[in-house]
Simulated assay, not measured.
Amino acid sequence: MLYGMASAGTVAWVMYQKFCNGLPYYRQEKDWKQYGVEITRATMANWVIRNSEAFFLPMYEYFHRKLLERGFAMADETPLQVLHEPERRAQTKSYMWLFRSGEDGGPPIILYKYSETRAGDNAVDFLHGFKGYLMCDGYSGYNKVPDAKRTACWAHIRRYLTDAIPKGKALDYTQPSVQGMLYINQLFHLEDVIRSKYSSFDAIKKARLEKEKPVVEGFLSWLDQQNPTRGSRMDKAVTYIQNRRSYLSTYLEDGRCSFSNNLSENAIRPFTVGRKNWLFCDTPNGAQASAIVYTMVEMAKANGVNVYHYLTYLLEKLPDDRMSDDELELLAPWNETVKAEIERRANESNQSYVNCQGAPATEK
């Protein structure tokens, strides 16, 4: 039974509104009043915290186990404000981490994790048991993950060089930053062409080695020739790139390796957009619940199922920690039976909406 004496659909709607549409509880409270229903923001927060911990956490932990089995992973992190953390000031930064599967052809797995700090040990703990390629930004904390082979994000390399181009000098090829961008732009173009032309990972690897490796080598040779003014934006860019030099060519080793960390940044963006509306989490329990529900929401999106109906489905099935992995697999959003059921529910809802609106008038 759900906590809070509310239906699965009602609790799922509250979750959907906040974690998919970015609608804070206080605005939902006002919205409910428009329909003559008194549901306080505290009640809604309690529904989300208790039900996500009881019924979504088993799914979350199952997704986590499945991620650790994969050979390609990606990560990102962003600040979060939590007001009432023990022995910490309200203004102190906490963090929401994003871990996801890579571009290896398997079903996408996306997991959020709340932590009080940005310490690299958080990544070490979460990725304990993972062995494979890890795509992430330049944060050195990921270096602590023992069995992960780091790959560099070429999108971050490009951003640093873009920032180093003097204003109005984007077409001035005497500028070192512009010269560096020529290499980067060529790599991005080649990557797009190769990805669109080949579906086989072996073919992608072969094409990268043939077409992209010489460009990477040329870029590194260019990099060694740079001697920018100390403290300049170009100096900052060169330092950033040199510090990640050993990871720049790693993606060439396997066609399943990602060229950039854009997938992770896209996956964490819903949280950063929602944060602009609700600004902070009140308690660590609320932050943890946010991580769990955002995981369910983004897992539904990534696997192509309707978010609201998937949340409702889980709250009806009530997965718990006594279920085996085989049983939890039957509730995963990539499961074909689940996909068919969610699609059926979504179609029925759409048809009900059309029926309520009435048939469109016909011209005489």
Rank of each mutant, 00 (worst) to 15 (best):
V14A: 15
E29H: 10
Q34N: 14
E38N: 14
E69C: 05
F72T: 02
A73M: 03
Q81V: 11
S94E: 04
Y95V: 07
R100F: 05
K113W: 04
E116M: 09
T117K: 06
G132I: 01
L134G: 02
D137L: 05
Y142D: 01
R150N: 03
A155H: 10
A155G: 10
D163N: 14
D163Y: 13
A170I: 09
T174E: 14
Q175I: 15
Q175Y: 06
M181I: 14
N185I: 03
L190R: 10
F201T: 08
A203W: 06
A203M: 14
I204Y: 05
L209E: 10
E210M: 07
E212K: 05
E212H: 03
S221Q: 12
D224A: 13
T229C: 05
R233P: 00
I241W: 11
R244Q: 15
R245Q: 07
S246I: 11
Y247C: 12
S249C: 08
S258D: 13
F259T: 02
F259I: 02
S260A: 15
W278D: 06
W278Y: 15
Q288Y: 12
A291P: 02
K301V: 03
A302K: 10
N303G: 00
G304A: 04
Y310Q: 10
L314F: 11
E316Y: 12
P319T: 09
P319F: 05
R322M: 12
S324M: 11
L328K: 13
L330Y: 02
A332L: 08
N335K: 01
R344C: 02
R344A: 11
V354G: 00
Q357C: 13
G358V: 08
P360V: 10
A361F: 07
